[in-house]
């Protein structure tokens, strides 16, 4: 469970101080699907980075399972990310020199999983996103949709508690977008992880249990959406 209290994030831009988050308070329950919407530059991605321990707030606390991510040492944060948090990025962010299977395996490297087990788990993850036959292909040999499926498999292979997705359909055409939305929803139902999804796409946001809207660094609205529930 996440509990954010008075989270503020300020950046120095030249002589100006820009506040990306202004006193955000938020609770995200385990297994919840939360969609975060808002216009560009209003703090959606910054909020996601706070949840993922990729950045620290200027003030406030980001509690994850009772531990304040903001107060953790870098090595502890790295450990939390390695074990409990999966990321999906808009631009896929696959390592271009590694094959689809090796990209998925990369998520298990910091967990010191033995090579054989790593390969088996990566193959299973690729199978679950329908890319078993593309395991040996490098990203440049895959379509955008296929690359995002590899990224989803990479995020899920370690069976994280939380999946953080930043505009996962932003770079995809409409058909592929629907395909990826369907996949994310299916996996969320199957795995029961917490899903925080930043999106401009209202169609995608509507599928979430709750929708939060970021405006000028503040969580302006939080409303119930479709009321879907995870399987577990």
């Amino acid at each position: 469970m996440y509990k954010l209290s008075g989270v503020t994030k300020e950046y120095q831009k030249g002589s100006r101080v820009v506040a990306a988050l202004r006193g955000v308070d938020l609770v995200i329950e385990d297994g919840e699907w939360l969609a975060v919407q808002g216009r560009t530059g209003h703090g959606k991605t910054t909020l996601l980075q706070m949840l993922g321990g990729l950045d620290r707030p200027t003030s406030g606390t980001v509690e994850f399972d009772g531990q304040d991510l903001a107060a953790m040492r870098e090595s502890q944060l790295t450990g939390v990310r390695a074990a409990s948090i999966g990321f999906i990025f808009q631009t896929f962010n696959l390592v271009p020199t590694l094959s689809a299977a090796e990209n998925v395996e990369a998520a298990l490297v910091p967990l010191h999983v033995a090579a054989g087990s790593r390969r088996a788990r990566a193959a299973a993850a690729l199978e679950s996103v329908g890319l078993a036959d593309r395991a040996r292909h490098v990203p440049s040999e895959l379509s955008g949709g296929q690359q995002q499926r590899v990224a989803i498999a990479r995020a899920l292979v370690k069976e994280p508690k939380v999946l953080l997705a930043d505009e996962p359909t932003g770079n995809l055409d409409e058909d592929t977008r629907d395909e990826i939305i369907g996949l994310l929803e299916r996996l969320w139902r199957e795995h029961g992880h917490t899903l925080v999804l930043v999106t401009h796409d209202s169609a995608l946001a509507r599928r979430a249990q709750r929708v939060a809207v970021m405006k000028n660094g503040q969580l302006a609205i939080s409303r119930a959406a479709g009321g879907r529930t995870a399987a577990t």
Partner: peptide, 16 residues
């Protein structure tokens, strides 16, 4: 930079 940033997000320690 993005590649290493991604690896860090995946939990790769800096020393790795």
């Amino acid at each position: 930079v993005r590649e290493f940033g991604t690896l860090k997000a995946l939990g790769w320690p800096s020393r790795r």
